[in-house]
């Protein structure tokens, strides 16, 4: 309890070095909105805390030359929300990030932390998956990239190798006619954990859907990329039959648990309802883009 070391390096190399050297006894601190709660509950007892908020690359937002975005893993929801362009280009991703916790939590919590916390109900993750975001990770053996969907391994577990730190998210450039959206279902109106979360990102050309990705949260041990749902939409004019097929694909993908917030039957049913509503919003945005 009292023998925790705290380190706030200014460079990534330093952070990776210390993190790797601690051999699993260390935890990364971004906003701390999950870590500190887990420590307080006695669920984790790190020997070393590596605070990454002083590393410039991890707290900055850049527009890439090709029109995409690179977001540092420790950028807070509030900072992302104040970016002049990001919310116009990726309104669905921003909505999802901004749904993490309360206003106070938004000042601290980051999409990187949300992803590495590896909760099946993390709000930003389905939207990031739908956006086809790629993460950059850095470890003792250097840098590599992996799709967001490949990061979670199960509740509370990731596929990051020992010593690896999540550095940033890269979101691809947007074609004309692209739009995204995120909706989640929670039992009370705010300050709650998603019972189902649905991210949709699609592109329309002359009313026909040319690309679609669907991320589905809180219905399986990890957030899912529901490929079949995307396929059902592509090539259609988002008619009722296509949307129902996508909803059915979402329901079929569900492998949820029963808990206080929702039963298996409830979550499965809601996955389809949310898909339809989220597609509606994404399509509206695509039509205007």
């Amino acid at each position: 309890m009292t023998d925790i070391r705290y380190l706030a390096p200014r460079t990534l190399d330093e952070a990776v070095g210390a993190f790797a050297a601690a051999r699993g006894a260390a935890r990364i601190l971004a906003g701390g909105t999950d870590l500190l709660v887990q420590m307080r509950a006695g669920a984790v007892r790190p020997g070393l805390i590596v605070d990454i908020k002083r590393i410039a690359e991890m707290t900055s937002i850049e527009e890439t030359a090709d029109g995409g975005f690179r977001i540092g893993a420790a950028v807070s929801g509030a900072v992302l929300g104040e970016h002049p362009r990001f919310g116009q280009v990726w309104p669905g991703v921003l909505e999802a990030v901004n749904l993490i916790g309360s206003t106070q939590v938004q000042g601290r919590a980051s999409p990187g932390g949300n992803l590495c916390n590896a909760s099946p109900a993390g709000d930003s993750v389905p939207a990031m998956i739908a956006a086809d975001a790629v993460v950059t990770v850095q470890g003792p053996d250097g840098r590599r990239q992996m799709p967001v969907a490949a990061v979670p391994a199960g509740p509370g577990r990731t596929n990051l190798a020992p010593g690896e730190i999540l550095v940033s998210f890269t979101l691809p450039p947007r074609p004309r006619g692209a739009g995204d959206a995120y909706l989640r279902m929670i039992p009370r109106t705010e300050m709650d954990i998603a019972v189902v979360g649905c991210g949709v990102n699609l592109t329309l050309r002359d009313g026909t859907c040319t690309a679609a990705r669907v991320g589905l949260g809180a219905v399986a041990p990890t957030v899912l990329l529901v490929g079949e749902a995307g396929k059902a939409l592509v090539g259609s004019r988002l008619d009722a039959a296509a949307i129902e097929a996508a909803a059915a694909a979402c329901r079929a993908a569900c492998r949820p648990i029963d808990d206080k917030r929702g039963t298996i039957a409830y979550r499965t049913r809601i996955a389809g309802v949310l898909l339809k509503r989220t597609v509606g919003i994404a399509a509206d945005r695509a039509g205007r883009a």
Binding site: P187, E190, I193
Partner: peptide, 14 residues
């Protein structure tokens, strides 16, 4: 559900 994250009371938005 022995905490306020799991024991729900109405929030302002409710």
């Amino acid at each position: 559900n022995h905490n306020l994250a799991e024991y729900h009371v109405p929030v302002n938005a409710d």
